[in-house]
């Protein structure tokens, strides 16, 4: 039976693209196809729109292909049939150049508008919360700068509130992905970035590191729990009250390669704050202007393994940041 429920036509389009392998199967209700927030919803709409257009192309070509195969098989043709000697057909060729161009326009426009939309808060009138998500080999560390608490391998967010995830990495490049809330972005040691997500309703979602980082990469999963604002507040209060404080030493230990279970801390050391090591003042990677102002000057201490070099860096009198900015822009174009 085909699943004719609300939004089923969209699902059918996707299924059609998969060449009907799914017909009769339960529709998948996890991951990308199960958006639970405005960001994921926007991406879902784009995915469905492109899948519909692509399905049309697939169907046209498949039908043509089958018709031609059946109609012009040598065994079906009379013995003395000779294919005509034709070189091409300018009109037809213009047609099948123009149609893909139209389709590219039809996908391109929502692509560009959505690309710019995703740089902004999904709900600009609501006050956002900021959470710093840091990947390390092989765990996720979440810091709540406004609340002063820290969690490891799980994160709780208030539902219906836009969350500004500040992504960074301690070592290898990972990717922060919660498919049901929205698409991923990389976590990098040399360029912290911002990812906006929001959950419509309370619920639990699976999040994970999505860019290979070595041995225990497969275990870099975490849960995201969206709670009602009041529940969230009481959870924060409870962590504040019951969880231990995190010392500098403990934080350093946490960063060492290895896996750990769920952890909660009522505070974290100053050195754990996410900073932009190379380029404060850069406006790319989705960082917005006010956020930049918040960013204190350069501080390399977080990720310096070589202490001597760290000192060198901190002694650097007045690095010329404005220049760096241009270069980093260039590097992306190169």
């Amino acid at each position: 039976m085909l699943p004719f429920r609300k939004g089923a036509w969209k699902w059918l389009a996707v299924a059609g693209m998969m060449m009907a392998i799914l017909s009769g199967c339960e529709p998948i209700k996890t991951g990308v196809l199960n958006p639970k927030g405005p960001v994921a919803q926007q991406q879902y709409d784009l995915i469905v729109w492109s899948a519909v257009l692509m399905s049309i192309i697939l169907i046209v070509v498949f039908v043509l292909f089958v018709v031609i195969m059946v109609r012009f098989r040598a065994s079906k043709l009379s013995k003395d049939y000779e294919p005509p000697d034709e070189k091409g057909n300018t009109f037809l060729e213009i047609v099948w150049t123009a149609i893909p161009v139209l389709i590219v326009i039809a996908i391109g426009i929502p692509t560009v508008t959505t690309t710019f939309d995703l740089e902004k808060s999904p709900s600009p009138n609501k006050k956002p919360i900021t959470i710093e998500a840091t990947s390390a080999q092989w765990k996720w560390i979440f810091k709540y700068p406004e609340q002063g608490i820290e969690t490891v391998n799980y994160v709780k967010i208030p539902a219906n509130v836009p969350v500004r995830f500040k992504l960074s990495s301690h070592d290898a490049m990972n990717s922060f992905w919660v498919p049901e809330l929205g698409g991923q972005e990389y976590t990098m040691a040399d360029m912290p970035m911002t990812l906006w997500l929001e959950a419509d309703k309370p619920g639990k979602f699976q999040g994970r590191g999505n860019n290979f980082t070595g041995r225990d990469f497969a275990k870099m999963v975490f849960t995201v729990e969206a709670k009602k604002q009041s529940d969230f507040d009481s959870w924060v209060a409870q962590i504040k009250k019951t969880a231990p404080k995190q010392s500098e030493k403990e934080y350093k230990k946490l960063l060492k390669p290895g896996t750990v279970g769920l952890q909660s801390y009522s505070s974290y050391p100053k050195s754990a704050e996410v900073k932009n090591p190379n380029m404060p003042g850069m406006n790319h990677g989705g960082m917005d202007k006010d956020e930049m102002k918040d960013m204190p000057g350069m501080d390399h201490s977080k990720k310096k393994k070589d202490d001597k070099k760290k000192d060198d860096m901190e002694d650097m009198p007045g690095m010329d940041h404005s220049k760096m900015k241009d270069d980093d822009m260039d590097s992306e174009k190169d």
């Binding site: 693209m17 060449m19 990308v32 994921a40 926007q42 991406q43 879902y44 784009l46 995915i47 492109s50 899948a51 692509m54 192309i57 697939l58 389709i103 590219v104 996908i107 929502p110 692509t111 959505t114 690309t115 939309d117 995703l118 990717s175 992905w177 498919p179 929205g182 698409g183 991923q184 972005e185 999505n210 860019n211 290979f212």
Partner: peptide, 20 residues
């Protein structure tokens, strides 16, 4: 099939969901 999914992947915001 590979080609049309390639077009889908080419859409940057959607790629945030397909990537890796």
């Amino acid at each position: 099939i590979g080609g049309v999914t390639g077009v889908m992947l080419a859409s940057a915001p959607a790629d945030y969901q397909y990537h890796n």
